[in-house]
Every structure is written in structure tokens, then in C-alpha cells.
């Protein structure tokens, strides 16, 4: 994802909570933490995590953007964008 900008502290805090049950090896979570390399997520776990994010924020995250999502920051910014668009 090429979107720049800072993840809002609220979004990161929400992700921090959501990631707890997925963070099996107790990785220190930062915005730049990578799902695949750092958290050892396979594509299926990524999908599962995205589903919990969708529930939490009451949005749909299109699958099309997933190839560009590598870090918490990427997904967080994408979620913020979708939430903003939904509010109009």
C-alpha cells in the first residue's frame, strides 16, 4: 500500500486489542509490524483477522486490497479510509 500518513492512536489501540488472540508468539506490536514475516500469519489467518477487523469497525474490507497489505499500518490506514468513506 502506498498510502502515507500516520495511523491514529485510536485505530492502533483497536488493532492492538484485536491482534492479541492472534499474536501467538508474543511479538511486540508496532504499526510497522508485518503480518507475514513478524506475526507468521499465512493467507488464511490474514483473512480471519480481516474478518474480525470488519466486525469491530462494521465495514467490509475488499479482498482486492489485501495483496498490498503487509503491515498493521497498511491495514489500519485502509480501514480508516473505508470508515471515513462510509460516514460520507
Amino acid at each position: 500500500m502506498t498510502a502515507n500518513g500516520e495511523l491514529s492512536p485510536d485505530t492502533f489501540a483497536a488493532f492492538y486489542e484485536l491482534l492479541k488472540p492472534f499474536n501467538k508468539t508474543g511479538v511486540d506490536l508496532k504499526p510497522e509490524t508485518r503480518f507475514s514475516e513478524d506475526l507468521n500469519f499465512d493467507s488464511l489467518v490474514v483473512m480471519e483477522f480481516v474478518a474480525t477487523v470488519e466486525d469491530r469497525f462494521d465495514i467490509s474490507v475488499p479482498m482486492n486490497i489485501l495483496p498490498d497489505i503487509a503491515t498493521i499500518q497498511h491495514l489500519g490506514l485502509a480501514v480508516e479510509k473505508i470508515v471515513k468513506a462510509a460516514k460520507g
Binding site: M47, A51, I59, S60, P62, M63, N64, A86
Partner: peptide
Amino acid sequence: AEIIRFKHNDAADLDKRLARL
């Protein structure tokens, strides 16, 4: 097209996602 997944066999979840669109 834009691809959205809904929860397995969950018509209510599908309804919610369609409503967003």
C-alpha cells in the same frame, strides 16, 4: 469487480454488507 467476503452461510452478514453498498 470489488470482492467482498461474507461469513459462511450467514445471510444476515450478507445483508449487512449489501446494505453498505
